[in-house]
């Protein structure tokens, strides 16, 4: 597993992605995001504030969840 998919999805400025990728190994296990476990249910607003999405609403379809930041 690695970052090629992330790069293709985000089409990000390479500086942003590679720099923060090298800074720390993503380790979501501590937060309950580990392989084989259910994701925590969260309902969050979209960045434009026009609607909300609960992760539970997305069940029934395969999902790629991208956690990132623009910095």
């Amino acid at each position: 597993m690695g970052y090629p998919l992330l790069l293709s999805l985000l089409s990000m400025t390479f500086v942003v992605v590679t720099a923060s990728s090298l800074e720390a190994s993503p380790d979501p296990q501590d937060a309950g995001w580990s392989v084989g476990r259910s994701v925590p249910d969260l309902r969050l607003p979209t960045i434009d504030g026009t609607r909300t999405i609960a992760l539970s609403e997305l069940r029934g379809t395969k999902l790629l969840l991208i956690q990132f930041a623009s910095w």
Binding site: M1, G2, L5, E23, P28, V39, P40, L55, A69
Partner: peptide
């Protein structure tokens, strides 16, 4: 979410289970 670092991609199945973290295309 409690995430400690970004960016990270999670592949999640229909039941809401994480099947891979940082998968390749």
């Amino acid at each position: 979410t409690g995430s400690k670092a970004v960016p990270v991609v999670l592949a999640i199945d229909e039941a809401g289970c994480v099947r891979a973290i940082g998968p390749e295309t």
